[in-house]
């Protein structure tokens, strides 16, 4: 099985625990106020280690996307075609995700509003999104 199970560390555990509990969390710097993903020990803006996890509203906006028509690993073959979409959360943190109702990318557009829609795959809760207003 080629499914890339994430390597859980002390730093990113709250992220994956949060998804399992039904919420998407991002990191917040208590020193400069910066919000970010993926998990890091230090704020990449001010380098402070004084950080905390916060729950996201789960709402965000599409920045760009691609649609795979080729499986680069065996486990992906059944998903074809599938999108990988860059989303900016309203809180400012960004992540790569999949849009569950994007109609193989045809309904996606830059700036489209999306909301969290957690799905389970191979025992891992994944932060997927759905278009708020699919046209």
């Amino acid at each position: 099985m080629s499914f890339p199970v994430p390597e859980i560390t002390d730093v990113n555990r709250p992220y994956w625990d949060g998804l399992a509990a039904g919420e998407l969390r991002y990191q917040h710097c208590k020193c400069c106020g910066n919000n970010w993903l993926p998990a890091r020990e230090h704020c990449p803006q001010c380098l402070s280690a004084d950080r905390e996890w916060r729950p996201s509203s789960g709402k965000g906006t599409i920045l760009s996307w691609v649609v795979y028509r080729h499986a680069y690993a065996p486990h992906l073959a059944d998903r074809l075609p599938y999108d990988v979409t860059a989303v900016e959360l309203d809180e400012g943190a960004r992540l790569l995700t999949n849009i569950v109702n994007g109609d193989e990318g045809r309904k996606l557009s830059v700036g489209a509003r999306v909301e969290l829609c957690i799905e389970n795959e191979e025992g891992v809760s994944l932060p997927r999104f759905k278009l708020t207003d699919p046209k």
């Binding site: 890339p4 994430p6 996307w65 680069y72 992540l95």
Partner: peptide, 30 residues
């Protein structure tokens, strides 16, 4: 060239080409 891209591989994010596809998409949209 085909490698999984870190922790984002779990979302299906593989290959060098995909990053360029992301930029290409943003370009043609803008």
């Amino acid at each position: 060239l085909h490698r999984p891209r870190g922790d984002d591989a779990i979302m299906g994010w593989y290959s060098v080409a995909a990053g360029y596809a992301m930029i290409h998409q943003a370009y043609q949209q803008r």
